[in-house]
């Protein structure tokens, strides 16, 4: 009797299972970052549903984390309400098919959320990245997004400010992102099916030459002086070669 009731309860969509024995068997979509794959219980992003990324907005390096996701898989990709304009050449270089990419913007909140919900549930879209518009997002809206995304086989990545972390959310996966250094993202688990909060990892998203800090003298006015006075001898010439990393780090 008890087993039947348990099965019935587990079959419900809104039942939260702390440790799902099947979770390890399910393989998610690879994130493209080994450390992050190791952090996630499913070995990658879930196939569909709502994922929340909590960070201090705008968090530009966050997009690098999602580029492998946008580049692979089937269906269209939608970038909704981005804080700035995603650069087409950079996306194309990362392997994103621009013919399948749609950018959606709106100054008004209600039409934006309605359009996103429709897109997510339409089954045409494989991945959507949505920057949450200003104002609170009620749990009912988030639940509709989650169910719509599951129904439309879409992975909806919702980027929210960090203060939303204290609010309950129906998203099964919530990650906290922070930029510790340029090109470095610290990803911490806030909520995960089958996992415990608090686990974190470091992800490197930029190439080495962009992450390496410039020599300390670069902040001096000499280097940034306008070209009208370029012919004056600069008091500190730039160093001849790259310095070892240990000397550059403050």
């Amino acid at each position: 009797m008890c087993s039947d009731f348990l099965q019935q309860l587990l079959a419900r969509r809104d039942t939260w299972r702390g440790r799902d024995p099947d979770a390890a068997m399910r393989s998610g979509r690879a994130t493209g970052f080994q450390a992050l794959d190791g952090l996630l219980e499913q070995g990658g992003w879930p196939d569909s549903g709502l994922v929340e990324l909590l960070c201090t907005l705008p968090c530009p390096p966050l997009m690098h984390l999602l580029l492998p996701l946008l580049a692979g898989g089937d269906g269209a990709r939608v970038i909704a309400n981005p804080p700035a304009r995603p650069s087409a050449p950079a996306l194309a270089r990362a392997g994103v098919d621009l013919r399948q990419l749609l950018v959606l913007q709106s100054r008004e909140r209600a039409p934006l959320l309605r359009a996103c919900l429709e897109a997510v549930a339409s089954d045409s879209v494989g991945v959507m990245v949505l920057w949450a518009p200003g104002g609170a997002l009620p749990a009912g809206t988030l639940r509709r997004f989650h169910l719509g995304a599951q129904q439309g086989r879409c992975l909806l990545i919702l980027v929210r400010p960090r203060r939303a972390a204290s609010q309950p959310s129906p998203a099964p996966l919530r990650l906290d992102l922070s930029c510790s250094a340029p090109g470095q993202l610290t990803v911490a688990v806030h909520k995960q099916p089958g996992g415990r909060p608090g686990a974190h990892c470091q992800v490197t998203v930029l190439p080495e030459h962009l992450r390496r800090a410039p020599p300390a003298c670069a902040t001096l006015p000499a280097l940034t002086r306008r070209p009208l006075v370029d012919h004056l001898p600069s008091p500190l010439p730039p160093p001849p070669g790259p310095l070892p990393l240990s000397e550059l780090r403050p």
């Binding site: 650069s87 996306l91 621009l98 013919r99 749609l102 950018v103 913007q105």
Partner: peptide, 13 residues
């Protein structure tokens, strides 16, 4: 979605 006048849709190129 194009029928919604408040939305701005485009494809980066």
């Amino acid at each position: 979605l194009a029928m919604e006048p408040a939305l701005n849709l485009y494809q980066p190129s």
